[in-house]
Design a protein around this nucleic acid. Structure first.
Length: 368
DNA sequence: GTATCCCGCCAGAAT
DNA sequence: ATTCTGGCGGGATAC
C-alpha cells in the first residue's frame, strides 16, 4: 500500500513509454522541484469552490507520490494555507489563510526569543543589506544560539527525535517552518543567511555530534524555503557579497503567485515517471527544450488549471441563444483543438469538463 | 567543489 | 495487522 501510488504511476509510465517515441530524456531535477509542486498545488486547488481536499486525490492529480505531499502540506499548514481535518483530509484556506497565520506568528515571535534584531550584548545579529555592514559577522553566536536553541521547541523536538528509538513529535517540519517564519518576521526585512538560520533554528545544545544532524536539517530548510518561495513569502538571495545563500522576507507583497526566476512555474506538474538515474521516453513532453511559444503558453496559463480562460467564454445567457449547430461546431472545435497539456491529470480533468460541456449543450439543444 | 534538494527507506503513530 | 505519517540522510543534479 505504501507505494501504491508510485506503482500506479510507474504503470502509467510504462504505458507512456510504449506510446511514445524512442527519444530518450534524461532526468531533470528542475521538473520535480518542491516549489513547482507547490505552485501546481495552488493552481489546482486555489479556487473559491474548494473547501476540502484529500491527500490521495491531490497526489494523484498532481502526479506525485504521497510522501511528497506531506512535505508540502506540513509547510502549508504552518503558514495557514491548510488545516488538517482528518486522515488525509485537509481544509483548504488558500492564500487567504496566510495573513492570519502570519499575524499570529508575528505576535509569537515578538513574545519569544526570536526577536533577533538586537543581540544580548547589543550586537545586531542580522546584517542590514542596505548599509552593507558586516560587523555582525562577529556576532556573539554561541550565547545567542544557545539561548535561542534552548528556548526553541524545535530544538527540544529535534534532540529527542532520531531513528534510534527517539519519540517522534509528528510536527517537526511544521514546527521548523513556523520557527523559520518567525525568524524571518523578526528580521525586519533584513536578509537572513541560511547558515545563520540553521544555527539559530537547528543547533541542539545537548547534542555534541550535531554537525551531521544539522546537515540533514539544513536540507529541510531548503525544502521549507522552496515552499515559502513558491507562495511569494520569501525570496532566495545572497548574503551581502559573500555569496552565502540567504533569504529575504517578502510577506506576500502581491496576491498572485510569483513567477520563479529559476524555474518557470507551470511548465509541468512534477511527474514521478521520470526517475533519477534513469532515462525515459519523452512522453510527448519535451521539457528540456520547450520553445518560447510554449513558455508564453505556460505563463499565460500558469494560474489556470484548466488550460483556458473561463472569462473568455461566452456567458450562459448568450450560449442559450446560440443555435445547436453553432454549439456543435464549438464542441467539434474543442474536441479537435486540445491545448498542449503536459500533465495527464489535468488532461483528464479537461476531458471531464469537455464531456460535461457536451452533455450540457445536448440538453440545451433538446429544449423547445 | 559546493550548493541544492529529490527520493524513498523505514519506524513511530494512528486506525 | 494495516495504513498513515514524516524524520532522515544518501546521493544525484545544479551551479
Amino acid at each position: 500500500m505504501k507505494y501504491q501510488i508510485q506503482n500506479q504511476m510507474n504503470e502509467s509510465s510504462t504505458e507512456e513509454k510504449k506510446d511514445c517515441s524512442n527519444e530518450e530524456q534524461s532526468y531533470n531535477r528542475k521538473q520535480k522541484s518542491l516549489g513547482l509542486l507547490c505552485s501546481n498545488f495552488f493552481n489546482l486547488y486555489d479556487d473559491d469552490d474548494v473547501e476540502f481536499l484529500n491527500l490521495n486525490d491531490a497526489a494523484n492529480r498532481l502526479g506525485v507520490e504521497r510522501r511528497r505531499m506531506y512535505d508540502v502540506v506540513n509547510v502549508f499548514e504552518a503558514i495557514g494555507v491548510l488545516v488538517k481535518k482528518g486522515k488525509a483530509q485537509y481544509y483548504w484556506k488558500g492564500l487567504g489563510g496566510i495573513a492570519n497565520a502570519l499575524k499570529e506568528m508575528k505576535e509569537e515571535a515578538l513574545n519569544d526569543s526570536f526577536n533577533i534584531s538586537c543581540d544580548d550584548d547589543g550586537t545586531e545579529t542580522l546584517v542590514d543589506q542596505q548599509t552593507g555592514s558586516s560587523s555582525q559577522e562577529n556576532l556573539n553566536a554561541n550565547s545567542r544560539v544557545e539561548a535561542l536553541a534552548a528556548g526553541s521547541s524545535l530544538a527540544k523536538c529535534s534532540s529527542s527525535s532520531s531513528k534510534n528509538g527517539g519519540t517522534r513529535t509528528g510536527k517537526s517540519l511544521r514546527q521548523l517552518t513556523e520557527e523559520f517564519v518567525k525568524l524571518l518576521l523578526s528580521s525586519d526585512g533584513k536578509v537572513v543567511a541560511l547558515d545563520q538560520a540553521a544555527k539559530i533554528l537547528l543547533t541542539d545544545a545537548n547534542n555534541s555530534s550535531e554537525t551531521r544532524c544539522n546537515d540533514s536539517k539544513v536540507r529541510r530548510l531548503y525544502d521549507i524555503a522552496n515552499v515559502l518561495s513558491s507562495v511569494g513569502l520569501i525570496e532566495k538571495t545572497h548574503y551581502l557579497n559573500s555569496g552565502r545563500p540567504a533569504f529575504k522576507w517578502l510577506g506576500r507583497q502581491k496576491e498572485t503567485l510569483p513567477v520563479s526566476k529559476k524555474r518557470i512555474f507551470g511548465t509541468d506538474l512534477t511527474n514521478m515517471s521520470i526517475k533519477r538515474n534513469k532515462t525515459v521516453s519523452s512522453m510527448n513532453l519535451n521539457l528540456n527544450s520547450h520553445n518560447q511559444e510554449q513558455d508564453r503558453y505556460d505563463l499565460a496559463h500558469r494560474h489556470n488549471p484548466f488550460g483556458f480562460d473561463p472569462t473568455k467564454l461566452p456567458n450562459a445567457d448568450a450560449i442559450v441563444k446560440k443555435t445547436v449547430t453553432r454549439s456543435q461546431a464549438m464542441l467539434n472545435l474543442a474536441s479537435t483543438h486540445i491545448p498542449p497539456y503536459r500533465n495527464q491529470g489535468l488532461q483528464g480533468l479537461f476531458a471531464h469538463y469537455t464531456e460535461a460541456w457536451g452533455t450540457w449543450y445536448d440538453e440545451i439543444g433538446k429544449k423547445p
